[in-house]
């Protein structure tokens, strides 16, 4: 074979592999949507789940997922922001900084099940929080922190150094420069990072099974008192999320229509995550355009 023939053959082979990957994705999405959509109905989305009979919905699971997402972001965003500011603006080039970076890398490489088990050990058992939304949100925070820190730090890093100099040359404190100049410029990137991490939180299950628990008590959506045990806002109640629900109905095998419930739930999950992804992109682009004055 001449080199040119090899070249053509190799290119064909690469294209073939790429094609397979694309087909896999199309198959996955197609399978989820096609087998899931028929099961999605108003009834499915708005009725409570039933364990031992067919026809259950996912109302509470869906709400739990969203509530948990919000709580997790409320806890993890300030922590991640502060840490990212430290790393990008205050950290010197020394052993301490590299220790911190190593710690964050270790945190990000931990399997989510290990993070979940740690949350179970410390919060559910030691701190007696029990299986609760709060324990779940804390576990998800651990799991979410490294990613969020990395994306915020990246966005801050992308702000040109000349902006920092402009700020401090005017006699502004570093803190004021960060808050008033750097953060607004980094905002599109930060928002994109938050939304993408929201997608991950939304689909995570392993860290939740032993923290937020696997049961969904009947919720009272008219009770706005967060301390009442039946209130939908109570952060101390156990809460099965959509992703955990899919896992549970499949592994316990007591729900007769487990497959259709999982299919419908998977489709809902995927659609929401797709929305997150597109939203992240759209918001990022739009804010970027607005900031640069349309240029």
């Amino acid at each position: 074979m001449t080199p040119n023939q090899t070249d053509r053959l190799a290119t064909r082979f690469i294209q073939f592999l790429v094609l397979i990957v694309v087909l896999i994705l199309l198959f996955l999405l197609g399978d989820i949507i096609i087998s899931g959509l028929p099961h999605i109905s108003w009834h499915f989305l708005t009725s409570p789940a039933s364990s031992f009979s067919a026809g259950g919905g996912i109302r509470d699971q869906l709400f739990n997922s969203l509530y948990l997402l919000v709580l997790t972001l409320i806890i993890s965003f300030p922590l991640a922001l502060g840490s990212a500011i430290y790393l990008s603006e205050y950290a010197g080039d020394n052993w301490f900084t590299s220790l911190i970076r190593t710690a964050i890398e270790v945190l990000s490489s931990l399997p989510s099940v290990v993070v979940g088990l740690f949350g179970y050990l410390l919060f559910v058992i030691e701190f007696h929080l029990g299986f609760s939304i709060l324990s779940g949100a804390i576990a998800l925070t651990f799991f979410n922190l490294p990613l969020l820190i990395r994306s915020i730090e990246g966005s801050l890093h992308a702000v040109p150094n000349s902006q920092r100099e402009a700020g401090i040359a005017l006699g502004l404190s570093n803190w004021r420069t960060i808050r008033g100049i750097l953060l607004p410029m980094a905002l599109p990137g930060i928002l994109t990072g938050i939304i993408l991490s929201a997608g991950r939180i939304f689909g995570e299950a392993a860290a939740l099974i032993y923290t937020a628990g696997q049961s969904a008590p009947i919720l009272d959506y008219t009770n706005w008192n967060p301390t009442a045990s039946s209130s939908f806002l109570n952060p101390m109640r156990p809460a099965e999320t959509l992703a955990v629900h899919i896992w549970k109905v499949n592994t316990e095998g007591v729900t007769p229509d487990a497959v259709s419930i999982s299919a419908g739930s998977s489709a809902v999950l995927i659609i929401i995550i797709l929305l997150f992804n597109f939203g992240a992109r759209a918001i990022g682009n739009r804010m970027y355009k607005k900031m640069t004055g349309g240029k």
Binding site: S162, Q163, A166, A169, G171, I181
Partner: peptide, 18 residues
């Protein structure tokens, strides 16, 4: 910070805030 308030600086590349 007071030093920089009294001794201002303009840089090589224009760096207005966004």
């Amino acid at each position: 910070y007071e030093v920089r308030k009294h001794i201002g600086m303009v840089f090589q590349k224009p760096n207005p805030f966004a």
